[in-house]
Design a protein around this nucleic acid. Structure first.
Length: 419
RNA sequence: UCCCGCGUAGCUCAGCUGGUAGAGCAGACGGCUGUUAACCGUCGGGUCGCAGGUUCGAGUCCUGCCGCGGGAGCCA
């Protein structure tokens, strides 16, 4: 490579032009290389081109690769020719601090910046790791519909649209469908975008986010948690192994991530409430844990923690009643450490037709919409469990970023539909 | 829906108890020993979010509205 003639195509990050030499930092999509243009080494026309290159112009550089300790990275290109393929006048983003609104308005350009590249590369690695883990563990991927007439968990937070005169909704979960595929393949999962019309304005919420939802026949709630901790540990390990550079760019302290190995601590909802009260944090048994309570619980442990067996009233209709304590259901949340909060929600599913129907009626849910879901309990019902892992929250935690909107290429939040 | 905070140059911000608009970056031009978000100099650049009000005088004080951010609730 050193000493050879080469051409590099890419985009100009910065230009530092002096009287007799100019330095061009060129991003080719895999990395950034320093290109050096010496005034005496090139034609007057090429020199003029180099000196006036604009930020983010697309160029083709011809030259020789050489080692030089003065170059960042130790190598650089000595340029002999420049071809400007795409000019870039008045590029709006500067290599400096910008406000959130400005950056999000320019998301289509912001993607090019180094931290955004790092975050999105980790996202891509995590997505790949998710598929690899599940594939290696003999899960079959089942793609579930985005347009649906059925309701997911609760009616309030659905985006509604018109479907040739019928009411349709954007899926807020693929779970009910993936349960149907369980008797076909035993271990299945879906992975795709989901939609919540919640008017949440926090660093942990998007209206469109990606969720992976495995579902396993004959798994009980404990085995469900076993799978979750193996899964999350695998994904974190993959990010550590294959995204070292990106995590360094993001200045992520990886020591906390190194600790993410099975087993994860497990604490029941009731135990958590007891301990909260004992610590002088008043809390009534029966309500769902709020964000402050979750933060407190996860602060007791140095790694992700399962909180399991919540009160029935705080959870979704499809969760199986806990035989040991019928006030509760067999479910779990997985709370990420360092204040990142809930990244997984899982449960053993109610497999008894009568009980499931009763829960649907108690919840005032549209019974007719769940007919096909109830059929699963009529034709060869079976114990099964599953969970949903939020991709952006997980990647936000792994990368240590303060807001999950940076971990999706084009975030959809309550006030943003463009770009 | 509720609570808190912020809207000043293209961008990031400063602007005191009210006295008539500023810096850095970006841009243009010039200078410059291999720079690391280079540096130095010159120049152009403003309906201080909008609408009212108080005042001799409002970027500054008051009211309403709009926009944005963070949090709560709800959730992954």
């Amino acid at each position: 490579m050193v000493g050879r003639m080469a051409t590099v195509s890419g985009w100009v990050e910065t230009v530092r032009a002096h009287k007799n030499v100019a330095f061009v930092m060129l991003r080719d999509g895999t990395g950034v290389v320093q290109a050096v243009v010496g005034r005496k080494d090139v034609s007057a026309e090429t020199w003029e081109r180099a000196a006036t290159l604009a930020q983010e112009a697309c160029v083709l550089l011809a030259g020789t690769i050489r080692a030089d300790p003065r170059s960042p990275g130790g190598f650089e290109m000595g340029v002999s020719g420049i071809d400007v393929a795409g000019a870039s006048d008045d590029y709006p983003l500067q290599p400096k601090e910008h406000g959130v609104e400005f950056l999000l308005d320019h998301r289509h350009l912001w993607l090019r910046s180094s931290r955004q590249r790092a975050g999105l590369r980790v996202r891509a690695e995590v997505e790949q790791a998710i598929h690899d883990f599940l594939y290696e563990n003999e899960f079959v991927r089942v793609d579930t519909p985005i347009l649906t007439g059925a309701i997911g968990e609760s009616a309030g937070a659905l985006f509604e649209t018109d479907y040739f005169g019928q009411r349709a909704f954007l899926a807020q979960t693929g779970q009910l469908y993936v349960e149907c595929a369980c008797p076909a393949f035993r271990k299945v999962y879906c992975f795709g975008p989901t939609f919540r019309a919640e008017k949440s304005k926090t660093r942990r919420h998007l209206t469109e986010f990606w969720m992976v939802e495995p579902e396993v026949a004959f798994a009980d709630s404990d085995e469900n948690m076993d799978l979750q901790e193996a899964f999350v540990s695998y994904v974190v390990r993959r990010a550590l192994e294959r995204c070292e550079k990106e995590l360094a760019t993001l200045e992520r302290d990886t020591t906390a991530l190194e600790a993410v190995v099975p087993p994860f601590p497990r604490i029941s909802y009731s135990e958590a409430v007891e301990r909260l009260v004992a610590e002088g944090h008043p809390f009534d048994w029966g309500a769902d844990l709020g964000a402050p309570e979750e933060r407190r619980v996860s602060s007791w442990f140095g790694k992700p923690v399962f909180v399991h067996d919540y009160p029935k009233s705080a959870k979704a209709f499809y969760m199986k009643e806990n035989p040991a304590d019928p006030r509760t259901v067999l479910c779990n949340d997985l709370l990420a450490p360092e204040g990142y909060g809930e990244i997984v929600g899982g449960s053993q599913r109610e497999d008894d037709h009568g009980r499931l129907l009763a829960r649907i009626r108690e919840g005032d849910l549209p019974e007719e919409a769940y007919g096909w879901y109830l059929d699963l309990r009529k034709f060869g019902t079976f114990p099964h469990s599953g969970f949903g892992l939020g991709l952006e929250r997980t990647v936000g935690w792994i990368t240590g970023r303060p807001h999950i909107r940076e971990l999706v290429p084009f975030p959809r939040t309550i006030n943003r539909l463009a770009p």
